[in-house]
């Protein structure tokens, strides 16, 4: 089985949209620090890709990279994947149930029905249109960073996860890595993720560019809409000729050492 490497792309979306660039607003992590990756938690991650053989000299499989984008300051990725849809449904349901109460009280002259309806409107929250060309699973109902509905302009909202739309650059052009988007039953990545196989026979440091789409909530005439905004950011892989090794045993494939 290929050794799988994960690269986490953490984006400060609010600041990136404010400064109209990803530069300085992306923090990168991978799970190969023990093999020599550098720059964990900074924009300058260099992901190590060890060589094509195991430490016992046998031929290893290719290196596989996987990219996982995440949003800083949003509802964390540990909530259930259907969280946005569930909250949208739950808040709609609560408001629907209250309509009955408002209708019952409407005959009472001491009740301000208009104010009650306005309250209901706030409970339902705002729904944003989706622009054509946007690729994020941006939910129509706008939530804030604590999972409650957003009712109007000027309120802080939860950004949809960043989406990788392409991976290009020298590492791809020089045929060191072969990135592609894959469909997956793994719901952590909304069913889609970017992965690449790396040719580990040519040692060297190779840069690559991630094309990342963010979504900005734009209000026009009181109507919100998710607008896609495309940026790029760079990172690098470093292919080395050291053997791959198992993180538990420090050795290659084969029998486990007896303690």
């Amino acid at each position: 089985m290929a050794q799988q490497q994960g690269i986490i792309v953490l984006v400060d979306i609010a600041n990136a949209l404010r400064s109209r660039t990803l530069t300085g607003n992306v923090y990168l992590f991978d799970n190969m620090k023990f093999l020599g990756s550098t720059g964990q938690g900074t924009p300058d991650l260099v992901t190590i890709c060890p060589g094509t053989y195991w430490s016992d000299g046998s031929q290893a499989t290719e290196q596989v990279l996987n990219w996982l984008p995440a949003s800083l300051g949003s509802i964390p990725p540990t909530v259930p994947r259907s969280y946005h849809a569930d909250r949208a449904q739950a808040t709609d349901q609560e408001a629907l149930e209250e309509i009955a109460g408002v209708a019952d009280r409407a005959g009472d002259p001491s009740v301000d029905t208009a104010a009650e309806l306005e309250g209901l409107r706030r409970r339902v929250g705002a729904r944003a249109r989706r622009q054509r060309g946007g690729r994020a699973p941006a939910a129509p109902k706008v939530l804030d960073v604590t999972g409650n509905v957003v009712t109007g302009e000027g309120q802080a909202y939860n950004h949809p996860n960043p989406v990788i739309t392409d991976i290009t650059g020298p590492a791809v052009e020089e045929k060191i890595m072969y990135p592609a988007q894959y469909g997956s039953p793994d719901m952590v990545s909304d069913g889609w993720y970017w992965a690449a196989s790396v040719d580990t026979s040519r040692p060297g440091t190779y840069r690559y560019t991630m094309h990342i789409q963010l979504h900005e909530l734009v209000w026009r005439n009181g109507e919100p809409a998710w607008e896609p905004v495309d940026y790029t950011c760079d990172s690098a892989i470093k292919v080395i000729s050291d053997p791959k090794r198992n993180a538990f045993t420090g050795a290659g494939l084969g029998v486990l050492p007896i303690p």
């Binding site: 609010a14 923090y27 992590f29 300051g73 949003s74 302009e153 000027g154 802080a156």
Partner: peptide, 15 residues
């Protein structure tokens, strides 16, 4: 502009 209501989020990324 309406008052900025965006909270300051402090995120602990942990391995």
């Amino acid at each position: 502009k309406p008052p900025e209501s965006r909270p300051v989020t402090i995120t602990a990324v942990i391995d």
